[in-house]
Design a binder for these strands. Structure first.
Length: 466
RNA sequence: GGUGCGGUAGCCAAGUGGUAAGGCCAGAGUCUGCAAAACUCUCAUUCGUCGGUUCGAUUCCGACCCGCACCUCCA
């Protein structure tokens, strides 16, 4: 089975291939930089990272554009309150976001673009919409007239025909012709940042930036547009309305939406005290790759229940993977190659690929890897895993880690050097040979104090950092 | 009210019309100078409830119960 994704547009699993067969043109909704990213934000960005990596593992090249929303109501309010310019205010959080991405080992998209640097493109798009009769002005602001776009609702699968009985309706929006209409360009308010343009002195509405930037860098029709589930409506619906009204072409072939994360079974919120940033978790002593593993371990279309037990379980699971890798590297296996072991590895590679191809089923793919680990450990124990089987087994781990990226421990500055550890171990081996167990135990305690775990195996001692 | 998602062992969580992956926890064992670490084994007759279709359903259909999300800013 070939690579396939669940397309929110069709609500079906569809085989994926980029339009030109080679390079995936993908737009991913990035952060609004008005606070530190929380763990829920990072779940979505981790999904985007997995998507990137698996597309590449599937042989495609990438052209991924991610936006930085650096002008928006909350940003303006916060910046004004602190007496800062927009740029002064957003710079800190943008930097923090990129740092968090790097810490979590999230690849930097090919292009990261700021909304405030694309005002001209947005104005141009709004003017084109105006020429085609999709806009109207009210109190100096420009709105999108949804009644002109009959396909409105095709992504969110909402029926906008009747009254939205149970929905809360924004009573302040008296200046719109239709409650569904959304703002493209907001008239300047006193004291707020603004841009003086042919369509007035003001600032862009939230939705227009993504249409403008996506089409500027990736053309009229994207291969993939991805983002959080909450963006499906209205943000992505509005992007479609804006883009397709101008181009007359399908805006994105695939729409991929990541489900939300909940914390300890509850919606994450500041009032519940279960609101975490990556920085908070690192302060609690968890390694970044542990957080990454947990975020990866549930397929992106399912809610992920983020729990402290889960983080601990993730840390232990990573240990198991690393122990296996260490064993592969250090144990002395018999000569030749075992056919059954080769077959097991090849089978695992195949199933890993098939499972990931199935809409990025990361939980299933992890299952494949751990099952392979158990069976291979057993084969090693019974001497049925030989030196000639090592390379392919390492190949599977490499394939796995090219996507999950958790094998490499995050290095901490300081601490004992590898050479010093080796020297102490050599001393302990000598002490044991001389049956000086007192000194041997002393060395072991010393290493333990330095955060080194010593393992005595058939093939001699081996060690790892805690 | 509309739309969508989900309810699988103590916890997390895949999956399939043919009789339940995987991880964590727990228990047992192997190894070891002792230990640690590591590894192995065991751990759901059962998949929210009740009906239906079927030789057979956790998997399909219907009803119901429960939880959640979106319909307003939100990853």
């Amino acid at each position: 089975m070939a690579l396939r994704f669940y397309n929110s547009l069709s609500q079906q699993l569809e085989p994926f291939t980029p339009q030109d067969g080679k390079t995936v043109r993908m737009y991913t909704c990035g952060p609004t930089v008005y606070h530190y990213a929380h763990i829920g934000n990072l779940r979505t960005f981790t999904f985007q990272d997995i998507l990137r990596r698996w597309l590449r593992a599937s042989g495609f090249a990438l052209n991924n554009v991610m936006n930085i929303t650096d002008v928006e109501d909350k940003i303006i309010r916060a910046a004004m309150a602190q007496g800062k310019t927009l740029r002064e205010y957003t710079a800190e959080y943008e930097e923090a976001f990129l740092e968090d991405m790097a810490t979590l080992r999230l690849e930097r998209p090919e292009q990261v673009v700021r909304a405030t640097e694309h005002i001209d493109e947005m104005v141009d798009l709004i003017q084109k919409l105006g020429e085609k009769g999709f806009t109207y002005e009210s109190d100096g602001s420009t709105y999108y007239r949804i009644s002109k776009f009959p396909e409105y609702g095709k992504l969110s699968h909402n029926d906008f025909g009747g009254m939205i009985a149970g929905a809360r309706v924004d009573v302040d929006e008296y200046d719109k012709d239709d409650a569904r209409d959304f703002v493209l360009w907001k008239q300047k308010k006193e004291g707020e940042p603004s841009w003086d343009t042919p369509i007035g002195d003001g600032r862009p509405g939230w939705h227009i930036e993504c249409s403008a930037m996506a089409m500027k860098y990736l053309g009229a029709t994207l291969d993939i547009h991805a983002g959080g589930i909450d963006l499906q409506f209205p943000h992505h619906e509005n992007e479609i309305a804006q883009s397709e009204a101008v181009t007359g072409k399908q805006f994105a072939k695939f729409w991929l939406h990541a489900e939300h994360l909940i914390v300890e079974g509850q919606k994450m919120s500041k009032s519940l005290g279960n609101f975490y940033t990556l920085r908070d978790l690192l302060k609690l002593g968890y390694a970044p790759e542990t957080v990454r593993f947990l975020l990866e371990s549930v397929p992106y279309r399912n809610k992920l229940n983020f729990t402290m037990d889960g983080v601990k379980a993730a840390a232990t699971a990573i240990e198991r993977l690393r122990n296996f890798e260490l064993r592969l590297k250090t144990e002395r296996f018999g000569p030749d190659s075992d056919a059954a072991s080769e077959a097991r590895t090849a089978g695992a590679v195949l199933r890993f690929r098939e499972t990931m191809d199935d809409d990025l089923n990361t939980a299933g793919a992890l299952g494949v890897v751990f099952e392979f680990l158990r069976d291979t450990n057993s084969a090693m124990d019974s001497g049925k895993f030989l030196a000639g089987n090592v390379a392919s087994a390492q190949g599977l781990l490499s394939l796995f880690d090219s996507v999950f990226d958790v094998m490499r421990p995050t290095t901490v500055a300081g601490g004992i050097s590898d050479e010093a550890v080796e020297a102490l171990i050599a001393e302990r081996v000598a002490a044991k040979k001389a049956r000086d167990f007192g000194r041997a135990d002393e060395v072991r305690a010393e290493l333990d104090a330095q955060g080194i775990v010593l393992e005595d195996t058939k093939d001699g001692p081996r060690w790892k950092r805690k």
